[in-house]
């Protein structure tokens, strides 16, 4: 059982990574090794223990609603591989991939 090559392929697609068949097979095996290791946790009795989302115990860390000046447009665009005027320019994404 565990992860199949197809699972690994799906994972790679979601991460926008391309692998050869051999690389995928190797990755599948490594994934299974990792999962088997972490799977030890499944044998621990966690009855009644709430899931922990953070290793800290504080809550409500926030700030007041005070606007502050950020970067200039030039600084914001400084690392952009491509720009058009004051816009970032990116390759067009087809509608079928649109999210959000």
């Amino acid at each position: 059982m565990g992860y199949t090559v197809d699972d690994a392929k799906l994972l790679a697609d979601r991460a926008k990574l391309r692998f050869s068949r051999e690389q995928l097979e190797k990755a599948t095996q490594e994934l299974n090794d990792m999962i088997r290791y972490v799977d030890q946790l499944a044998h621990v009795d966690t009855e009644g223990v709430p899931p922990m989302s953070h290793p800290h115990s504080f809550a409500n860390v926030w700030r007041d609603d005070e606007p502050k000046e950020g970067l200039s447009a030039e600084d914001a665009l400084a690392n952009a591989p491509d720009r058009h005027g004051q816009f970032f320019r990116v390759p067009r994404i087809i509608a079928g991939e649109e999210e959000g």
Binding site: R63, D65, E66, P67, K68, E69, G70, L71, S72, A73, A76, L77, G85, Q86, F87, F88
Partner: peptide, 27 residues
């Protein structure tokens, strides 16, 4: 309609010139 963004302090305003209300967080 807050004055600043939700996870950084950049101002919220409609119609500002492009990329003038940003910081490393919202970029």
């Amino acid at each position: 309609a807050t004055r600043s963004k939700v996870f950084c302090s950049c101002p919220v305003s409609f119609g500002a010139p492009p990329n003038t209300q940003t910081c490393p967080v919202c970029l």
